[in-house]
């Protein structure tokens, strides 16, 4: 864990709050005064990880910036479920743009603020995985290259959910989507495709890159706060399960995020200037099967019989992450 974990307090820093901690040790989300950047009445599905991830991240950014942020948002679920005109769920300055250009809009806002001498106001741009790794990739890479003073947050639910679960460059191998059907000799998304945007971002050697999940709030808040302490281009990639697209129980959203990290399939780490500076160790190692089984997008791996070969290939991906990032801890925490 990159931040100082709180020990011996029954639940340590694993839970959102903890009545035994002093106020300044508590998370943003535990506070009755949190911004609720995203307010009641939004139309995200039951158990939407993206709605949760966005509130977690933006509330933390609000606190870190003294409530001085402007947010540019790409099209995607996060935009559609929050702002069906004339309603809005946003309680922060927020601007909608297009599916592919939130990084460019963020860059523009940052330039305008600089021109006006408003150094106190910070810019956040955000998008789904489609808006980040596919159509929005060019503007984002440009933003990284220019080191524009924007924090870009990708909410990765591993497909184009808003338009009916089409594959994206972040869809994992073997996952079924509307465009990677579970038919043929290699059902679901192909192995060997897709992009790892956190690593690509690191290759740009921007000041700060981090990954996080909605399962570890304290870690996510820490990373947003840390990102806000830098100027220049920063990138946070948050895994946000989507019950609709993944075919998982709405109540399993956090559990699945946790399992994604614990299996090693989704490494949680942070990097400065292109170098990994810390990784979240696996607490209770888990075979990938446990993570795959509850999701209907992987159902074809288990029916009629378990497809051990494909499951093995997915396990190999996890194992590679584990050794590449050093995810195992020598001693239990």
């Amino acid at each position: 864990m990159p931040f100082q974990p709180i020990k011996f307090y029954q639940t340590g820093s694993f839970v959102v709050g903890n009545r035994l901690l002093s106020e300044d040790q508590r998370s943003v989300q535990s506070s009755e005064d949190r911004t609720n950047s995203l307010t009641l009445g939004h139309r995200a599905c039951q158990g939407c990880g993206e709605a949760l991830g966005a509130r977690y991240a933006l509330d933390a950014a609000m606190r870190a910036s003294g409530n001085q942020i402007v947010v540019a948002n790409a099209t995607g679920c996060l935009e559609v479920f929050t702002t069906p005109f004339p309603e809005t769920s946003w309680q922060i300055p927020w601007i909608h743009s297009l599916f592919g250009n939130s990084a460019a809009v963020g860059t523009g806002i940052a330039a305008a603020l600089r021109a006006k001498g408003r150094h106190d106001i910070r810019v956040v741009a955000q998008a789904g995985d489609g808006g980040t790794v596919d159509i929005g990739f060019g503007p984002l890479s440009g933003m990284f290259e220019r080191n524009d003073d924007v924090l870009f947050i990708c909410y990765d639910n591993e497909a184009y959910m808003n338009t009916g679960v089409q594959r994206s460059g972040a869809t994992p191998p073997a996952a079924r989507t509307a465009t990677t059907d579970a038919v043929g000799p290699h059902p679901g998304e192909d192995f060997g495709k897709g992009k790892n945007l956190p690593l690509i971002a690191m290759a740009h050697e921007i000041p700060y890159v981090a990954t996080a999940t909605v399962a570890e709030l304290r870690d996510l808040e820490y990373k947003v706060e840390k990102a806000m302490s830098f100027h220049g281009a920063r990138y946070i990639h948050v895994l946000v399960p989507c019950p609709l697209g993944w075919g998982s129980a709405p109540s399993d959203t956090i559990r699945l995020s946790r399992m994604a990290k614990e299996t090693g399939l989704f490494p949680v780490f942070e990097a400065e200037g292109g170098d990994v500076i810390s990784v979240s160790k696996i607490r209770h190692p888990l075979p990938v099967e446990e993570y795959l089984r509850p999701q209907r997008r992987y159902q074809h791996l288990f029916r009629p019989q378990p497809n051990t070969e494909t499951i093995g290939r997915i396990q190999a991906i996890a194992d590679k992450n584990i050794s590449r990032f050093g995810l195992l801890q020598s001693e239990p925490e």
């Binding site: 839970v15 709050g17 995200a44 709030l217 959203t253």
Partner: peptide, 11 residues
Amino acid sequence: CDNCYGVCPDN
């Protein structure tokens, strides 16, 4: 522990 308060996607 505030967990329920935190984890609700619908506030």
